[in-house]
Nucleic acid binder design. Structure first.
Lengths: 149, 149
DNA sequence: ATTCATGCAAATCGTTTGCAACCCA
DNA sequence: TGGGTTGCAAACGATTTGCATGAAT
């Protein structure tokens, strides 16, 4: 988490952006709730507790900036909201999302096995993969057990 | 393509929906442009050429219905538009999308290798995968060749 | 002092909805 | 006939933007 914050500060500076209270507060919130997949509105509500005078537009602009700088990832779980999660750069922390179509819960699963597919794509399509998004839709354990079929 | 249309007609009937001119026209358009990933607005513009009196809301409602019935898939390429592609049920036609972050072009790549990941997910997470979405971001062949790096 | 960032409110824009007229089954 | 469907226009709602003020470097 301190790594996260140092990285955040240097990334901002290197790119000519200023270190404002609002940006600090939002980053801290994202760290504090890193397991949550918060939506913009949820982040806004949480920020207001620590910094009541903040405007929604600032939250939108900040998240857009963090996303552009690669500090966070934008997620889309088809519920009409943009959601975000921290980009923890440690290589072994990338993951896919399992979205339960019954209860809407989202869990994470360690990712693997895509490297060979990506090599194949470069070889066959000449397309150089730099990132990917994988979503699995289905029934979570809880929903499978509490319904027939 | 005739399979497609027969399936469309029976699917509608089986679910108690009516076979209207508008729905026919939209389905035909999707078949005609199956390689295109058309957005709702693009579909609307195309439909108007054959059926000028159609309303945008009908296009939205029709696509929503087709999606619900599994006749089409909704796609999201992060450009602010909902896009759609036909669901060709043939098992060997599923594919992933390669999105070029430079020129925005989207190409398709035959999918494979996910089955073992999905088995693993069921085993480790108890989550039963029924569908998935995979997007690869990167540089297409053309963009790689026309720029340094 | 300069430049970027913020807060507010208004504007955007893709999408949804209410409703009377319509049309398939 | 009668219930799903359509077209129109109005409503929605997440996100963006213009602008004057304020803060960071």
């Amino acid at each position: 988490m301190n790594d996260m914050i140092n990285n955040f500060e240097t990334t901002l500076k290197e790119n000519g952006y200023k270190l404002t209270v609002q940006r600090r507060v939002i980053l801290n919130l994202l760290i504090e709730h890193e397991e949550k997949h918060l939506s913009t509105e949820e982040i806004y509500e949480l920020v207001k507790k620590k910094y009541p005078q903040i405007g929604l537009a600032t939250v939108y602009r900040t998240l857009m900036l963090f996303d552009k700088l690669g500090l966070i990832y934008k997620l889309d779980f088809d519920d009409g909201f943009s959601r975000y999660e921290l980009n923890k750069r440690e290589a072994d922390h990338r993951h896919h999302h399992l979205i339960c179509t019954q209860c809407g819960n989202v869990e994470e699963v360690r990712e693997d096995l895509l490297d060979s597919i990506e090599e194949d794509i470069l070889f066959k399509n000449g397309f150089l993969v730099k990132d990917h998004r994988v979503k699995f839709y289905g029934l979570c354990k809880h929903c499978r057990e509490s319904t027939d079929e």
